[in-house]
Nucleic acid binder design. Structure first.
Lengths: 135, 135
DNA sequence: TTCATCTGTAATTTTTAATATTACAGTACA
DNA sequence: TGTACTGTAATATTAAAAATTACAGATGAA
């Protein structure tokens, strides 16, 4: 189990809700209710994708890296290491078995199709859309 | 991480590949390369959904519970406890924060939409289709 | 020009979930 | 009645996620 996607969306939603302000990892962690270091770590990743800007030093903090309308949920999904939607087995099927020999390939293919489906769906939702749900 | 879906599909694929025969948990486990008890456990679950039949006692074993053409990948997905596609955070957002107060609800909504999308996709693929990939 | 407050990141510990293993009762057939 | 299976509980092991600790570096303000 892994909650990075939810954490990432939570962070982005907070930044979107308070435009112009720099929010600290401590403040963000307080809203999510997790450790500030995890917030900084997750942001460190999101920053690579331009989704978040950061400013170091006193009075530093975080803000959105681009307009909320431009941020697609699929961008977040891609940026965050979400585990494969169908799960991920760690066994190594028996190559001496005709089924075991090929199944990983076919399962991967299936996983890839599902992944594309998810991304297509998430492309239709922006951070702005998501933020609009909060009244 | 959780490989139950892959395990389930592997089991079903084996049963589909050897129709009429009863396969033992030991044989199945050998192909998947996991512990036989896990196979029996997973089958115990799939059996509840009618996807697999079992026969106890000497010369017992497992067979498909219905025609491979009738088994949809979405049935397997629903039967198996696949973790939510977007992951699952275990934090409890701060209810004193306007965002924290509502976000779980909105994230759940999003997760549900994605889940439907996945199921719709998996409805289009039967076990027979999947089995046909093996030559 | 130094203090306070922040980010960035590494290293470690703790917690939790997944998987493996052991054990054995119950069933069915020969 | 012995053998080869399933069914399932209990426990141990492994691996992944999250929390924590620690501290260097940046920046602004007193």
């Amino acid at each position: 189990m892994n909650g990075q996607f939810q954490i990432a969306v939570h962070i982005l939603t907070l930044l979107n809700a308070q435009p112009g302000e720099l929010l600290s990892s401590e403040y963000i962690a307080g809203s999510i209710n997790i450790n500030p270091v995890l917030v900084r770590k997750e942001i460190s990743n999101l920053r690579k994708y331009g989704l978040i800007d950061s400013k170091e030093g006193k009075a530093g903090g975080y803000s959105l890296g681009m307009a909320a309308k431009k941020i697609l949920m699929s961008d977040v999904y891609k940026a965050v290491k979400v585990q494969p939607a169908l799960g991920q087995a760690k066994n190594k099927p028996n190559p001496a078995c005709p089924v075991g020999k090929q199944i990983s390939e076919h399962l991967d293919e299936l996983a890839e199709e599902v992944n594309s489906t998810i991304i297509n769906k998430l492309k239709t939702i922006t951070l702005a859309d998501f933020g609009d749900k909060f009244n």
